[in-house]
């Protein structure tokens, strides 16, 4: 199967469309008959990553790349970046505002959930210079 890539735009603070990129990728993977458990893991990672961009990042890009042996989610934004990556990986740590917490976000579970559900996760970020999160999912057991 040739490699296939598709990208979606994410807009900062756009709660109306937040989640749509993840839903589109979920539908795409279903059409491609990807294993349903794997689709569920990718849906969790995609949603958490997408909401992070909407709430904390700037505008962003949500890309899925489907290969023979793996699926890669690459979620990037041009926002404020992450000052201390080790800190944001701690369960329960969040910089969400009270408004977001009232909406049920900001539990400090997003990034830990992503790390748990991805086979590999890499975060690259520079203060004031955006963030890129790349998550890899292997479609065949090694």
């Amino acid at each position: 199967m040739p490699s296939f890539k598709k990208c979606f735009n994410i807009r900062s603070r756009d709660f109306i469309h937040a989640g749509e990129a993840s839903i589109a990728v979920q539908q795409l993977l279903k059409q491609m008959h990807v294993d349903s458990n794997l689709i569920r893991r990718i849906a969790i990672c995609g949603y958490e990553g997408e909401m992070n961009v909407v709430m904390h990042g700037g505008d962003g890009l949500f890309c899925v790349e489907i290969d023979k042996n793996k699926i890669v989610l690459n979620i990037s934004d041009d926002g404020q970046g992450i000052k201390d990556i080790a800190k944001v990986m701690e369960k329960g740590f969040s910089t969400a505002t009270d408004e977001y917490r009232e909406m049920g976000f900001g539990a400090g579970m997003g990034l830990p959930n992503m790390e748990k559900n991805a086979d590999n996760m890499i975060i690259e970020s520079e203060n004031e210079n955006g963030t890129t999160v790349q998550m890899t999912f292997f479609t065949k057991s090694a």
Binding site: F15, I16, A18, G19, E20, S22, I23, R40, I44, Y47, E48, M51, M103, G104, F105, A107, M109, G110, N113
Partner: peptide, 27 residues
């Protein structure tokens, strides 16, 4: 808490929540 729901809700479930904003439909 939406992250908790994303992590733990079983497929095909009925979800009980007090959240009213449109992101619950995405979840």
């Amino acid at each position: 808490l939406l992250s908790e729901v994303m992590a733990n809700a079983p497929i095909g479930c009925v979800w009980l929540t007090i959240q009213i904003h449109q992101n619950i439909v995405a979840v």
